[in-house]
Nucleic acid binder design. Structure first.
Lengths: 227, 227, 227, 227
DNA sequence: CATGAATGAGCTTTCATTCAT
DNA sequence: CATGAATGAAAGCTCATTCAT
């Protein structure tokens, strides 16, 4: 019976934590929506409050201020990346080539879903603390790590030419970002599927060593079929 | 006597025009310097005036306002691109492969020189009118046009695989931009020369059809030598 | 049985009253501490709540709001003055000169103990209602009343010159306050004891009529010994 | 003729300087008025702007911000003190007693004229930088310096008892301030003249050594006549 | 009784823009 | 042509106060 109080308190705290978390997400979502559309500097705290249907003051009890909110938005997006991409890769089996294809598709799909937020890191740098910037860069490195891994595996297995994997991994990340950054260009003529297929085909053409070409002929043919 | 006036006026007008042009360039240069470094929103008109050593008011007799100035800065940068790249290509001779190599190198070098200004188009969008945005996009298309041309020529000459030239041309433009956008990543391990060489090698690996490989073996070997 | 209820209620009410009183004092002490240190305007209700280890809301069930709290803090300080000074005077015997010396010392000691709170009345005025201000003034008058009384007694006994007692009483109060208000000046060179002794010596020099000088020669010599 | 340009420029600059100075004074006066009445924290920059009949923004081109403005107001008041008091003393001749009487009167008169502003230093301390506070204290010391000088001269001439001149000088300054600080008390029963006369009489009673009493009998009688 | 999440008016400060000189 | 003093809307942020729990 003496335990009843703590139990109640625990339940209370859990409930409070849940509400707090929900608010955070609500605010983050509102801020992401506006900042991605207009750029963080063009978005006022009043506008974020209005978008989230709360008062200005409330934002300040969840985030330290505007810059803190911006950082939280960016980190949130990057963390979702980090979580969602590996899942797609795991489902692609063991073969490095298939894994690479699946990984790049996963990146592009996540970007496509969060088209607006993905643009944020390209627009912001002023207003973020040095520590914030470091966090973002680390997350971006972590995000591209799966690609690097696959490329190294493929080179070790002599499926890929011995390229600079840091360079190629980042190129692929950039091309995924480009789908959001330059949608006005690519989305004039391509769908997400054709974009992914064509970029994949180009990459594989550069990577797969001549004597493995035949092995992946069907895969490449499939990619080219989306033209 | 009647003729004297027009003659005088013409001279006056020419002089005035020259002064006006000089002022414009002076203001543009000051604005570009600051905006590229800090982002256009973080730069005040007073700061631009101070940087250009003129009064605030003067800016308003050369540009319609801050957004107009921003647009002018971006357009100015893109126009320089449009002017400088073709010169480099022309010097590369007739062969599409060599022209492509020269063109990409030229893009990267121009970007490297105007590292800060190149970032501007990725940071700004709010505050630009629809018309301004259209102008920028058109200039960006025009900027990538030489690449598209070379690729088409190469395909026609059966030197390149029949790729989507719009896609590949824009990829190359993006990779040139990336040198500035992601300098924190690439410039950790690469110089401009190695960056250009490696990216070029990758692109050629994807583009050059198998039966032309031997023909460009020396070129590719040279690129790989910068590893 | 019918009697049990009222008895129980009485006990309850007494207990409640005691708790209420304790809370009030707890809140008042916390508020006084912060307001005296930083000025009432620089202290937020949240800070008071935190200092008192309660929630913000609770303060509002004991005080009408921030201004009400401020007034209560000031009144509380003045009431302590009113209570503590007469005790010191009573202990000084019947002679007006000794009573005056004891009274001034008592004022200064109370001020010294509540150095910070004493400053409050000099800092605040906006935010207090007219009624609140009147209350404070009345308390300040009441506080100086013992001095006025002693002075009148001394004049009646022809120990003191026939000065304006309202003026002199208030001068003495001011000099006691000054110990707190201008501590940066006086506490460079004086201790509380020397401050009291010197101010007392000056006052007695102005007050004691020539033919009584000899009578208090020892007292004055004692005061001058602290030089 | 070549000198005409510089002359014109000089005239321009002089005119500009005059306008600037006038603005500064206008803003200072408005700020002093409001801050002295309500306390600096209760006065908004908008209110100052309204009082001075200018826009908010303008204040920021004359002062660094609210704290800077507050400091400027206080310093301005103290500097006027420093300028006006010595003039009154100089007119009082050579005798230390007459000089002291004139000096105290001058202090009180200046305080009376700037009744509101004089209160400011007692109310403010939060919001002033350490450097600002030091400046104020130095000015306050400088302000009381003439009194200290007179007292030392009087003691050297054996007109005054050998008192602690730092203490007495500051007491007199405090009593002058008190006229403004506690006007609700003193101005119930006294005019400025009677206040000055009575305080002067008390001070002289404490200071003038017995064998000099007769010499200043007429002066003291005059002071007592204002009762 | 007690809590603290939520509100929103109001603060200080910045800065694009204008216009008398 | 050129200046820069002046404007005032709008920003980020704080905090006294309320009220559902």
């Amino acid at each position: 019976m003496a335990a009843a109080r703590p139990a109640l308190t625990d339940a209370d705290e859990a409930a409070r934590h849940a509400r707090t978390q929900k608010r955070r997400e609500q605010l983050l979502a509102a801020a992401a929506r506006l900042m991605a559309r207009d750029g963080s500097e063009a978005v006022s705290m009043h506008a974020v409050a209005a978008e989230a249907q709360v008062s200005v003051g409330l934002i300040y009890s969840y985030f330290g201020g505007k810059n803190d909110l911006l950082l939280a938005v960016i980190v949130d997006v990057l963390e979702r990346f980090e979580a969602e991409v590996p899942r797609a890769i795991a489902a692609a089996g063991e073969d490095p080539v298939h894994r690479l294809v699946a990984a790049f598709r996963a990146y592009c799909e996540v970007i496509d879903q969060r088209r607006h937020a993905a643009v944020l890191t390209y627009r912001e740098s002023k207003g973020l603390t040095a520590k914030g910037l470091r966090t973002i860069k680390e997350l971006e490195l972590a995000t591209s790590e799966p690609l690097r891994q696959i490329l190294n595996d493929g080179i070790a297995a002599e499926l890929f030419a011995p390229v600079d994997t840091d360079l190629v991994a980042y190129n692929l990340l950039l091309l995924a970002h480009a789908w959001a950054l330059k949608q006005w260009y690519f989305q004039r003529t391509l769908t997400l599927d054709t974009y992914v297929a064509k970029q994949t085909a180009l990459t594989l053409a550069a990577l797969i060593s001549p004597r493995n070409r035949r092995k992946y002929a069907a895969l490449i043919a499939g990619l080219n079929a989306s033209r």
